[in-house]
Simulated assay, not measured.
Amino acid sequence: MRPVTPPHQALAPTPWRSRSLNLSGLAGAFAILAVLCLLSVSIGTRTTSLSEIVAGLSGSNETIAEAAVSLRVPRTLLAVLAGAALGVAGCVMQGVTRNPLADPGILGVNTGAALAVVIGIAWFGMSDPQDFLWSGIVGAGLTAVFVYTIGSLGRDGATPLKLALAGTATAITFSSLVVAIILPRADIAGGIQSWQIGGVGGATLSRTLSILPVLGAGFAISLLSARKLNLLALGEDMATGLGERVAVARLTAAAGAILLCGAATAVCGPIAFVGLVVPHVCRLLAGVDYRWLLPFSALGGAGLLVAADILGRIVARPAEIDVGIVTALIGAPFFIWIVRARRVRAL
């Protein structure tokens, strides 16, 4: 039987050695992300040299390579922001629900955001990117409440398995509704079907920058909830005994995750499994303290999405594979492994 860490030790400050190792790990993760961003800017249908990258970054479009660099920069920036948002959102969701299967895709939150955006486009003629953004956030929030309510029914409450089943059923139902809405609308079907796969191609700097305020708020709320998530990890009774209001803590942390997930989905489409894979890998590197786990998840999610985008350009050159497909190929086996592992019942 695995020993249980006493509450006073679980909440104690991180030892200097662990803090130093985690800082080194964050620096290493940031360096890897910087290299991936450089590769993302340089790799595509046309490979560019360092001098062409520098010229393209300075605003020059005199050659085809320099123009390609200027197009890849917003795409790379969007991949970084969306990946970080999904990584942190997944980490927060796992902490709030104490569910190792929690992920914006598996819990249906991504699909709910996508459904809200599709309804806005098809039924209300929505075209403003800001309308997409707020529709995605509202859809993500309503879906999260719905899935948690359904998963809480019964004697045992919101168990990990019930939440995963409720989220999966909701995601399938909402995906079917999206198809039913767009089938009669040939004028919008092509664009929505492409967006629904999930990708960062065609990103523009203005659209990417438009989600920064919402992402900033989501990141801030999530990071400020780190201590609350540490207390929730001890169990509801222990957290209450230590003076934490469990319902408020869950609601606050979930609000940050919903902002991040809704904003990322509104711009990129529903990208699954980033929020599942990244937090589990980061726990192996940073441990279970959310004060470290959340920053690691942000860098890890950004790195995973940028790497998936690069891989999608390489394997199908001169065509591309959207990142939503690449992350699904990576995440599906990981999901099966978690389901079969010992951590299915509790986090």
Rank of each mutant, 00 (worst) to 15 (best):
L77Q: 06
G218K: 00
I53H: 07
P13I: 00
P160F: 01
F30H: 15
L305S: 02
F273I: 10
Y148C: 08
I182K: 00
R2G: 14
L26Q: 07
L81D: 08
V145L: 13
A140G: 07
R19G: 13
A332W: 10
A113P: 00
F273V: 07
L23C: 11
I172Q: 15
M1K: 15
G157Q: 00
G95V: 12
G324Q: 00
L36E: 03
A189D: 12
M126D: 04
L304G: 05
L33D: 06
G136S: 07
G139V: 02
T47N: 15
T76M: 14
I150G: 12
R72F: 02
L251R: 14
G262R: 06
L86V: 11
S18R: 12
V54S: 14
F334D: 08
T252F: 13
A308C: 05
A89S: 13
A316D: 10
L223W: 15
L11Q: 05
S127F: 09
L224F: 12
A263L: 03
L115H: 03
L107A: 04
D322A: 14
L234M: 11
A266W: 01
V80H: 00
A308N: 09
P13M: 05
G56M: 03
G59I: 00
A264E: 05
G56S: 05
V147W: 02
G191H: 13
C261I: 10
L285H: 11
D128G: 09
E62C: 12
G112Y: 05
W123A: 13
A186C: 07
R245K: 09
M126N: 03
I53M: 13
P333Q: 06
L133M: 02
L153S: 14
A217N: 04
S176I: 04
R185G: 07
T240Y: 13
T76G: 08
G303R: 04
G154P: 05
R2D: 15
I211T: 04
A171W: 08
N99Y: 04
L50F: 14
A140W: 08
L234R: 03
D156V: 11
S152L: 12
L142H: 00
K228G: 15
A89E: 04
L107M: 13
V306F: 04
G191V: 13
I43K: 11
G59T: 04
F335E: 01
T170I: 06
F273A: 11
G243F: 06
E66S: 07
G44H: 09
I53K: 10
G218N: 05
I192R: 08
A29V: 01
G287V: 06
G303E: 03
S297C: 11
N110R: 06
V4T: 15
R227H: 12
D103P: 01
G191E: 14
P295T: 06
L78V: 07
L223I: 13
A89N: 02
R155G: 02
M93C: 09
V178H: 03
A82T: 10
A217L: 10
G256C: 01
L347K: 11
